[in-house]
Design a protein around this nucleic acid. Structure first.
Lengths: 346, 346
DNA sequence: CTGTTAGCGCCTTCAG
DNA sequence: CTGAAGGCGCTAACAG
């Protein structure tokens, strides 16, 4: 009676095979699987047995063609994503999707090669039930290109006009960090930015500018351009070292930049936090293992992913009451050893 | 004449719409797209125009159902993957797949919950043309479970019986590192392991054991259990510190463990490399930014992914001459500041 | 409750 | 070179 899936090269069993094996119609098989309560127990069991015997799995393509969901979500990322940050966001997404029987396709958007066409093709090929756009993608693809195909779309870590998005309170958090540093005596700040087109970076910079605008008589805020990568953090440190009047507080737009910055600064004999305080952004694992441990603004990475996926599934399911607008998660300021009182000084 | 895709809510155009719009049969449309040379230029152009006008994209589900490829590859990973390592492998995979018009599904395998069924379901649902299994998955899912569905399968960073796999020369490289350390005076080594069931870890440990077996009169090799994570590296450091006779050379099975190890050791007043030399494995970006910079065995992460994807596509395309067996890529020993001469000592 | 039937959109013979 | 027609596997009406 056992005999799982005959020989080997046979093509997989179809619903017809199951129907014959169980002595019922294909419709009954379909129902026994999708709506068991509509099938008399006796038949249902025969079907279930046949399914097991033959090792039958519904063909997803056929299901999709017939009009049902594909249970596939396209997740669009940039080729140059920050692994420590987004890997955990992906985990969050996957966790929520898997729990609901969905799977994710990873679609890397290459900024250099004009590959967007490829993506839009995919989106219109009817393969997916929805799209999740991760930070940066919005600006890169101009946002509406992603909306155009008419698929349910949720944006994570950046906002696309008229599209539900999941964000963190980046502006508030970085101001909170600034305020903390101000409180312990710092008056000269520098912001290590991300790419100028990045949504997060804009939010942070705008909030910071507004905050210091109100304090412009007593404080100074500089800005050094970066792009989230360690390399750009090291470059920023060189510029910092070369400056005539060095800031005493660094607000970095990513932990990776902050850590590289500290490394270079220390090498040049600048003490952290004695000479300069450094605050990162993201809360990646390595913030605990660098020297000194990094004060940072921790983003709920897993939750970002989970929440984004959740909202998307809601929309797909048609629970679209609260659709539009943003969901804002809260960050946490984690004080560690890279920040301290401003150095005494004239 | 313009008018891209009507109003908005209409369902997407099908091949029939295109055929009507162009005044030809559906068969001609199909051919014009798949085998243009078989269609008279005049008609071909009419079709191409209609395609553009309507914004037509072939429906992937229908194509797949009709028997063609889905151009979808399932990439199976573990829920607890090491982001710094695998993110780059994924990039390599994506790069090769995208270049050939394929996309990847990320299937996280959860070790805790028995979720494998879900995966096998997916594999048999006829959605994919092939499967890429990343390190660790093989052992977890017992390998053959993945082979069973009869899909083309390639394993990366671990070997599955009778399945093509892409590996690095881990054994040779770690022995090379050991040899280097031996050459500069070290005689007491400790290996920080990964999970005991991990394929890579086994390869490394076996090679190391063999190497030291031949030197057992003059050398000592200890082993501390870890699992690749920083946390376990820190725990290993505690054990190291507590040991009566401390080894002078640490061979870590991951950079993340090595970095955490150094952090804890330094905190306890142990100098790296003055008192103990530390060598990592993987060559992640942070190896350059920790203190001191980490000597490590760099794995060609991007190439691992790219090569794995390449082999899989070859198999799918039927170029299966060189199918079985392994492809071995070479690692590079990167000497940095965390290793040095063994301390003088009785 | 269960079976019959009609397509979903596409590609690929098979005739013309 | 082009058109007509069947069917991939499945499910949702519609009858019984």
């Amino acid at each position: 009676m056992a005999s799982v899936r005959g020989g080997s090269r046979d093509k997989p069993p179809s619903i017809v095979d199951v129907a014959q094996h169980a002595g019922v119609s294909t419709a009954t098989v379909s129902r026994a699987l999708a709506a068991p309560e509509q099938v008399r127990p006796a038949l249902r069991e025969r079907v279930e047995m046949a399914v097991r015997d033959l090792g039958y799995r519904p063909n997803a393509a056929a299901q999709r063609l017939r009009g049902r969901r594909s249970r596939l979500i396209l997740v669009v990322t940039l080729t140059r994503w920050s692994a420590p940050f987004f890997a955990e966001v992906l985990n969050g997404i996957d966790s929520e999707l898997a729990a609901n029987g969905y799977a994710m396709i990873l679609g890397n958007l290459d900024l250099d090669r004009r590959q967007d066409g490829h993506l839009v093709d995919m989106m219109q090929s009817g393969r997916f039930d929805g799209v999740l756009a991760l930070a940066g993608v919005a600006n890169a693809a101009n946002g509406h290109e992603l909306k155009e195909p008419g698929l349910p779309l949720v944006s994570i870590c950046s906002e696309i006009q008229g599209t539900p998005s999941v964000l963190t309170d980046e502006g508030e958090s970085i101001v909170e960090a600034a305020e903390h540093l101000f409180g312990i005596g710092h008056r000269h700040f520098v912001y290590l930015s991300g790419p100028a087109t990045n949504f997060s970076d804009r939010s942070r910079w705008d909030a910071l500018k507004a905050y210091f605008e109100a304090k412009k008589d007593e404080c100074r805020l500089d800005r050094i351009e970066g792009d989230f990568t360690p390399r750009s953090g090291a470059a920023a440190a060189e510029r910092f070292l070369a400056s005539l009047e060095r800031p005493t507080a660094v607000l970095s737009s990513s932990d990776e930049m902050a850590i590289a910055f500290m490394k270079v600064a220390k090498h040049a004999g600048v003490h952290v936090p004695g000479d300069v305080s450094v605050c990162g952004f993201d809360g990646i694992d390595f913030a605990d293992y660098c020297e000194p441990t990094l004060t940072t603004i921790r983003q709920p990475r897993f939750e970002l992913g989970r929440t984004g996926a959740y909202r998307l599934l809601q929309i797909i399911a048609g629970h679209s009451e609260v659709d539009a607008g943003r969901t804002v998660l809260r960050n946490t300021l984690c004080l560690r050893d890279s920040t301290g009182r401003a150095p005494r000084h004239g």
